[in-house]
Design a protein around this nucleic acid. Structure first.
Ligand SMILES: [Mn+2]
Ligand SMILES: [Mn+2]
Ligand SMILES: [Zn+2]
Ligand SMILES: [Zn+2]
Lengths: 139, 139
DNA sequence: AAATAAAAGCAACATTGTTGCAAAATTTAA
DNA sequence: TTAAATTTTGCAACAATGTTGCTTTTATTT
């Protein structure tokens, strides 16, 4: 895993630092989206809050992670699984928020549906967030 | 308009106060979504910030307005046009954010598309936010 | 008009996010 | 391998946003 992380960072011409390794480990270790405060907690007191902000910004810029909109004013971040690059994300997948466990998942295989807009509107990007009960919680 | 506002408030068993009238006026006066800070600015220095927070919360609870998720950590609020009620919103419409004018619109006539989820997931609510160029900006 | 109920304002505080700059760590070049 | 150059980090100070308890004011009911 350590190797994978180095590869990702190098590929994006980022220096390999402790905080970047740690934060990337968190994302690779599970498949749910994380908020800034999740990361701040899980990364422990090892890193400054500012560093976390800057790291998430850098990763987003580089296309290593992407953001997920929520109604409750908390940006979520998740790993990009497609080959997103600097300034060019193409995660056209649906996101799912579970009402029971409150976790957010990338449904990488569920492609964003098309939307028929009224005359005059041009679509550039479509975000779809579904709320409901996830697979694990349904049982 | 003043009359309409009173009707709305009474219907929701809310007392008619200056701040509620003012904030509701802002929503009725145009068809774009407003952020908390938009409202704070437009409502002027007349009201305390806390009052604005509480009013938006109350209106949302009652189903007078609804929230719109955005990727940049700024909740937007817009009038409910359906007959939403306490604890029961049903604004199943698409939202549109214009990249040029940065305004957000409710596309009340564009119904949220269905999404086919993987086995085991249950959908309860679907949020669709489209980014692009709006009618006015296209010209 | 008085009593009751509800909302507003204020203060104090918590959380979240931003910026400039010096110190530390990483990368590059010698 | 070491020194220089570059990048990143941590710190401090600050700004913006959001929350809570309590008192005063305003609106509604009797
Ligand atoms: Mn995703
Ligand atoms: Mn809407
Ligand atoms: Zn769940
Ligand atoms: Zn526009």
């Amino acid at each position: 895993m350590k190797e994978e992380i180095t590869t990702i960072l190098k590929r994006n011409s980022l220096s390999v630092t402790a905080s970047r390794e740690k934060i990337l480990t968190l994302f690779l270790g599970q498949d749910v989206a994380l908020s800034h405060s999740d990361i701040e907690k899980k990364a422990g007191e090892k890193f400054d809050r500012v560093t976390v902000y800057r790291t998430l910004q850098t990763f987003t810029d580089k296309g290593i992670i992407h953001t997920i909109p929520t109604v409750d004013n908390a940006i979520l971040y998740a790993l990009c699984k497609d080959n997103c690059t600097q300034g060019h994300h193409h995660d056209q997948h649906v996101h799912f928020i579970c009402d029971k466990c409150a976790q957010t998942f990338c449904l990488d295989n569920v492609v964003t549906p098309d939307v028929k807009l009224p005359q005059g509107y041009t679509s550039q990007q479509i975000e779809v967030v579904v709320k409901g009960v996830c697979k694990a919680c349904k049982k």
